[in-house]
Simulated assay, not measured.
Amino acid sequence: MPDVAADSASSGPLAWVGMEDILIPMRVATGHGSTQQVIGHVDAFVNLFRDDQRGIHMSRLYRLIDEYLGDTPFDTHALEQLLQAFLQSHHELADRARLRLRFEQALRRKALRSDHHGWRVYPVTIEGTLGPRGLDVTVATTVTYSSTCPASAALARQVARQHFDAHFSSSAQISGSAASAWLGSELGMPATPHAQRSVAHVWIRPARGAAWDVAALIDRIEASLGTPVQTIVKRQDEQAFALANGRNLMFCEDAARRVQHALDADDSIADFHIRIVHEESLHPHNAVAHARKERKGLSGSSREYANGPRSSGAPDSAD
């Protein structure tokens, strides 16, 4: 049968060649030794270093994805094996391979106070590149939480105090029951601080030899923020959520530092980038803060920091 891909009429090396958005069922770890099946969106590439070859063998990549992504939980070892198989299948054409995997990880979450549980779903992107310099792995996820503005909270407290003083100004002595009744009425909360749904976009590079643990990473981020969004909510849970927000007032800068400190303390993470977005209820625009892993001797205005992590879009030409 004719093979026009081997035609050298259109020759020249290419940075990456492959396929995007291959859908495949696969298993991922969810922590505590458990796994779940997800639908993976796979992008698979190899470079084409031969300047006398027109194209690669894409069916080989697809066959290997179908073979390696199945009932065995996807981990660092499985990723490296698959990338090595990509290169072995194209040993005469390529010396670099890349795989990007996107899926949604569902984690079971307990309500804050009531004895109920629900599911939270988190988007996850895992990318691996194998080349002459070895294996490079990155993991990205997004965590949604609530943020209450500290400045707005202070202004609301000031209004409440002013209303309290005005209401009891004629009283020589204020009884505890009268003060309690006033605080329990709508008059006791004349102003409320503004809060908003907020998002932490986190990108990490695991330390060499370390395995990634997406569930543990999400848990660490949510614990550092203190106000992750909830699933099922009864009245006691909503009250506990309001209490958590009151105890965790934060600007976007505060949130970025919280996550930064939590990830800096994890020796299994070699590098990370954080993008915090507070979708303001006060403004029609968002408040945003970036943070990265602290490194001595590097300026926060360096080019690497300004550009942030590699995009999760089309792959670039670097290893």
Rank of each mutant, 00 (worst) to 15 (best):
I22F: 13
A289K: 07
F103A: 01
P132N: 01
M250A: 14
S170P: 00
D165R: 13
S311E: 02
L217Q: 00
L87W: 09
R161L: 12
D271G: 04
G246P: 01
I221Y: 00
L101Q: 09
A15M: 09
A314L: 15
G246Q: 03
L69C: 14
S59V: 12
A195T: 05
Q84T: 11
F86A: 05
R157S: 15
A289I: 09
H41S: 07
S301Q: 13
E104F: 02
T231N: 05
V202G: 01
G70I: 10
L87R: 05
G297A: 02
P228E: 07
R60D: 07
L130Y: 03
P2W: 07
A211H: 11
I232H: 10
G313Q: 03
E253R: 15
A256V: 05
D264K: 09
A181T: 09
T35A: 14
E280L: 01
F251D: 05
L107R: 08
D254W: 07
S224T: 06
E238R: 12
F168V: 10
F103G: 00
G313E: 12
A85W: 02
T138D: 00
Y62E: 08
V28R: 00
A6R: 06
L282I: 14
V233W: 01
Q230I: 04
H77N: 14
I218T: 09
Q236C: 15
A216T: 07
A200N: 07
H57T: 03
Q81L: 13
Y62L: 11
R100D: 08
S152H: 03
T192A: 12
A160C: 02
Q81N: 14
L101I: 15
F251W: 14
P309T: 08
I269K: 06
D165V: 12
F49D: 12
M189K: 14
E279K: 03
L101T: 07
H201R: 02
R54F: 10
S147W: 05
V202I: 08
R100G: 14
C149A: 06
D271I: 04
D75K: 02
D75I: 02
S152Y: 01
G18L: 08
G226N: 04
P206D: 03
